[in-house]
Design a protein around this nucleic acid. Structure first.
Lengths: 206, 206
DNA sequence: TAATCCATGTAATGAGTTACATGATTCT
DNA sequence: AGAATCATGTAACTCATTACATGGATTA
């Protein structure tokens, strides 16, 4: 259900074709809400059927066409209504912490590998989000620049501030996950040592 | 796909009926992987069809029956194989941060309400996870106690350590979300002030 | 003329949510 | 006798993933 609001958020800045939208999506909203093109095209059609957006067919070259979508009044209202509606939080469903809770069933090497890939995963996200923070500060994000261009001067500060604030939160989360996983690696070392010590003691006794 | 491993993790401790499993689930793995009963019962049937678990019909009173499930060798192997398999990370899909990125479109009061409910949401999770941490330390979690009872003495330290470590991570995450949302509330105050100051200055000029 | 973009989908499957549905047993 | 709990599901729907499918336009 959030997908359509993510799409509306982008289209509110200005009309785009499905293809452009999909590209822009990956580089902006896609950082907080992933969607593949195979989901975006049908969703646009559905949104058009519900009159949230309108598409205009444009010719391209001799035979090809493309559809340029823009937000309707209904769509704008739906977006604002959603912004003023309490968010539904999804129930926890966290495969990484599920696995972490049962790591005693894995070999220490597999447990280490788990934490290492957790670190890599979140370092990837961190890099994305830090990059986005930089692009916000330097006004180097094209969608943000277009957004500011159609925003009342007195609202520009807010627009930038909330975007920045969002990515700050994501960056902190990523750092938290990385720190946790690093501590996980240390924990495995400690457990190894303490198991080793116990084994030594037992051998000594025998 | 994680659901079945969450179920296996619980059943590995000892046989349970679907109903008991579902109750235990909510009180243990459910803290990291939520699943309603309408999902658990069919999944158990599917897992039985794939020989990961076996169910034995038990009579209850005069007419009623219940099915007690236990993990088969195949199931045990499948669980261990999963534990040694790289985790698939789901793509980001974060409605809260999606909304946060566009809060300039909401009234300040709606934006405040958003952050307040974000805080409440995560305080709820935090309380759950801190409670679980306490129950781990006091060995007051029945599933953990049963787990330890069937665990080799030399593995008990690891078992407790990983469980503790998991919930520590969740607690930190919740605290992070809460801290972020509190800063969000402050940010709105600041933007309000700066907007107010601008308005005053403009009026003064006129 | 081949590669790369531009452009738009469908189809099958799986995972999860919500609502509905039913009946036995045990405890008070 | 009524409430709570035990016990087990089905059905309809939405959302998301993965794979497949096609073809025009542009540029090197």
């Amino acid at each position: 259900m959030s997908l359509r609001y993510a799409l509306l958020a982008l289209l509110r800045v200005g009309p785009l074709s499905g293809y452009e939208l999909q590209k822009q999506f990956a580089m902006s909203v896609g950082h907080v809400w992933h969607a593949p093109d195979s989901q975006i095209y049908p969703e646009l059609r559905k949104m058009e059927a519900e009159h949230l957006i309108e598409g205009e067919e444009q010719t391209r070259g001799q035979r090809a066409t493309r559809r340029i979508y823009h937000v309707t009044d209904t769509g704008e209202q739906a977006f604002l209504a959603w912004m003023h509606t309490p968010l539904k939080y999804a129930r926890v469903r966290d495969p990484a912490h599920l696995r972490a809770a049962y790591l005693e069933a894995a070999t220490p090497e597999a447990a280490r590998e788990f934490f290492r890939s957790h670190i890599m995963q979140w370092e990837g996200e961190l890099a994305q989000w830090e990059g986005e923070l930089l692009r916000i500060d330097e006004l180097a994000n094209p969608m943000l620049v277009r957004r500011l261009a159609v925003t009342q001067p007195e609202d520009r500060e807010r627009t930038i501030a909330f975007k920045r604030f969002t990515y700050e939160g994501l960056v902190e989360r990523a750092r938290g996950e990385i720190a946790w996983a690093r501590r996980g690696l240390k924990l495995i070392d400690e457990l190894d040592r303490s198991a080793g010590a116990r084994a030594d003691r037992d051998t000594a006794r025998v």
